[in-house]
């Protein structure tokens, strides 16, 4: 017997709705649990004071700053490199064996588990180059780790810029570089920004690669060569070593809220940029 297509249609629509709600629901549940468990220990002074007794007492100020430093540095290193690669791949070369190899390399880089990056960073930056456990080792390791995301998202964003904009720019006498800087990149900005924001999220949330390279010092890093810890690492150590589950959840709450804030900020900026141009 033939099933009524209208019935199938309605069924599918409800089913798809359900899936969407389920996804959002998961996010809500996770944030809710973290919120309930963390809010009692989370306060402004928790965010602004130094930890005491391995984190059993006191706040997480150094961890917050460590997270900010690490994320900012890795973005500063990775963005020019990743954007440059994306511009090269899309604007300055034709599809060839070389581009296939580069893309394959980027894909492979993206698929490597973060612990491997941690080990590599430890062997190369910490030991071989003698940087020790430091902000710099951590940031360089994170740079390699987020590079594929930045390259891929930038490349897609640049490719989506209509070809005729490049042509008309050339017809007005602009060189390739002028066209890239003044037409292509501004048009691709929302996409590029998304990639950067995703990368910040990744750097903020990473633990394995960071412990191996940046170490886990509880002090506030005062220079590039100082060790430090991020909120994610702090959370991991507090929970793993049974130091204080209360403080761990409070840290997690700050972490989750800041990631949400970054995403909302990214979304807002992106819409502003898009609204300006279209």
């Amino acid at each position: 017997m033939r099933v009524n297509p209208r019935f199938t249609d309605a069924l599918v629509r409800h089913f798809l709705n359900l899936q969407a709600y389920f996804t959002v629901g998961l996010l809500v549940v996770i944030v809710f649990i973290i919120f309930i468990k963390g809010i009692s220990n989370c306060s402004l002074s928790f965010m602004l004071t130094y930890p005491e007794d391995m984190g059993r007492h006191g706040g997480i100020f150094p961890a917050i700053m460590g997270t900010v430093f690490l994320a900012a540095l890795s973005i500063v290193f990775a963005t020019p490199l990743g954007l440059g690669t994306a511009i090269y791949l899309t604007e300055y070369t034709r599809e060839s064996r070389l581009t296939t190899i580069i893309r394959f390399g980027v894909e492979s880089l993206a698929g490597i588990p973060s612990i491997i990056y941690g080990l590599f960073g430890f062997i190369f930056f910490v030991i071989k180059l003698g940087m020790g456990w430091s902000l710099l080792s951590g940031a360089l390791t994170m740079t390699i780790m987020i590079l594929p995301t930045i390259i891929r998202t930038s490349e897609e964003a640049i490719k989506a810029v209509p070809r005729n904009l490049r042509i008309v720019s050339h017809s007005l006498g602009a060189t390739k570089w002028e066209t890239t800087v003044k037409v292509v990149l501004p048009s691709a900005a929302p996409g590029i920004l998304t990639g950067i924001m995703l990368s910040i999220g990744r750097a903020v949330g990473e633990t394995a690669a960071v412990i191996f390279t940046m170490g886990s010092s509880l002090r506030l890093p005062a220079s590039l060569m100082d060790s430090g810890r991020t909120m994610a690492v702090h959370f991991y150590i507090l929970a793993r070593e049974g130091i204080s589950m209360e403080k761990a959840y409070a840290t997690a709450l700050v972490l989750v809220v800041s990631i949400l804030a970054i995403n909302i900020l990214a979304y807002y900026t992106m819409n502003r940029v898009i609204a300006k141009y279209s």
């Binding site: 209509p162 005729n164 904009l165 042509i167 008309v168 720019s169 017809s171 007005l172 037409v183 501004p186 048009s187 141009y277 279209s278």
Partner: peptide, 12 residues
């Protein structure tokens, strides 16, 4: 100078 088939102002 050149004017194209489809109006193609920059998205600025």
């Amino acid at each position: 100078g050149m004017v194209f088939q489809r109006p193609n102002p920059f998205p600025f």
